[in-house]
Design a protein around this nucleic acid. Structure first.
Lengths: 223, 223
DNA sequence: TAGATTGTTAATCGATTAACAATC
DNA sequence: TAGATTGTTAATCGATTAACAATC
């Protein structure tokens, strides 16, 4: 289980494998071959076998892979058997949506606290959790030791709050801020999610399939 | 401007370039060299020059790049000078958050309609837009011709609704459903956003920096 | 002109695909 | 045993990096 040898491209595919295997399991599959899985996922069988071999031999020649076992194995590699305590900073639209929409427990986390700086929000409940004053962050962390945080705060405060969280012992950031976090300190994990960039990419794709959104653009028909 | 020649890896980086150049402009930069930009973005100068050369020569030897001009050029390539009419399907937590949180216009889109199947929501306003009955989708599309759609609906209906939208003339999907859209029909653009996968990746990263979330896991100190 | 920095070609690196012997 | 399918090595492909001549 020497994790450090697994390449980043493979890691990015693991959650998707996990998801597809879950669907298969739900649909009553007990075994699947790399060829069949490849077809369903739009990958090559070769790639799937290469990927799975990064972390051991889970298949059986002439048979394929045991769906449930393989899924469990991938889940363990991803740390989904853990429940890392996580807090949310910023209870605006997006923060609240994530708090109630995301299945934290099946992603290796548990949401244990929500913070905002707007007094109007203090005490309001999102699911089971109340929104707390961000001023109470330090005392909360001393007591409950969150190791991960979601950042749904304005760009301006992002870096500062991240540093503050690092001092509180937080080592993983799910960052929705319009700012690319690159934690200089120690080793902290960062997942920057730029929804705006994602939409921008869609704009490019849309404009690629034909000459423009809807209107009378000039056409350079020159493939 | 032969778009089809630009590789996917480059395209994925373009929104980020656009964002950083915007920040630079806001901070009063008029020119920047590939070396300096590389430092700020955590890339190599070589890569930046390669990337920018995919779509023309925007730099000037001995000088660097004009920030404003370069940003405008990238924006044009991304189609950010357009306002492709877009609708939202699903006005749950996430849908509502996106509707009010995302800067559509600066991403090449304009949100023109919101739909849900829950009658309790009909008539409620999100920003300037009312939530409509999804039953009115077809008549709305005939009138307003949206070309793009956000999917924030349950997984079960995703494929079906996508097909329905295709029939209505929609050709771009920003998909937040737990389902990998792969439009078989014609050429439609799809951007699958799996927030769950993103969080799962963070779980992996967190578990990589040390032996576990917080508790007394067995440690395989090896590597 | 001299210095800086690009545009671009060549070299390297990594990831994907193909092929096939091992084996269930 | 024969058929199927893996694990794994080798070949290909693409993306990143390095290097340098062109040029502002």
């Amino acid at each position: 289980m020497s994790k450090s040898s697994i390449s980043n491209s493979v890691i990015r595919r693991l959650p998707r494998y996990h998801r597809f295997l879950g669907d298969l399991e739900a649909n009553g599959y007990t075994r699947i071959s790399s060829r069949e899985l490849a077809e369903k996922m739009g990958l090559t069988a070769s790639q799937i076998r290469q990927d799975f071999n990064c972390f051991g031999e889970f298949g059986q020649q002439g048979y394929g892979y045991n769906v449930k076992e393989l899924r469990g194995e991938i889940g363990k590699i991803l740390g989904l058997d853990k429940r890392a305590p996580m807090i949310l900073l910023g209870a605006g639209n997006l923060g609240r949506a994530l708090a109630s929409h995301i299945d934290f427990v099946n992603r290796g986390f548990e949401l244990i606290g929500i913070f905002d700086s707007n007094p109007d929000l203090f005490g309001i409940k999102i699911g089971e959790l109340e929104i707390h004053d961000i001023a109470q962050l330090e005392s909360f962390c001393e007591k409950h030791h969150p190791v991960a945080a979601i950042l749904c705060i304005p760009k301006a405060g992002a870096e500062e709050e991240a540093d503050r969280l690092i001092r509180c012992g937080v080592r993983a950031f799910w960052n929705f801020t319009h700012f690319d976090l690159r934690i200089s300190h120690s080793d902290a994990a960062v997942e920057n999610v730029h929804l705006g960039d994602s939409l921008t990419t869609l704009s490019y794709q849309l404009n690629s399939i034909d000459g423009g959104a809807d209107s009378s653009e000039e056409e350079d028909t020159e493939e």
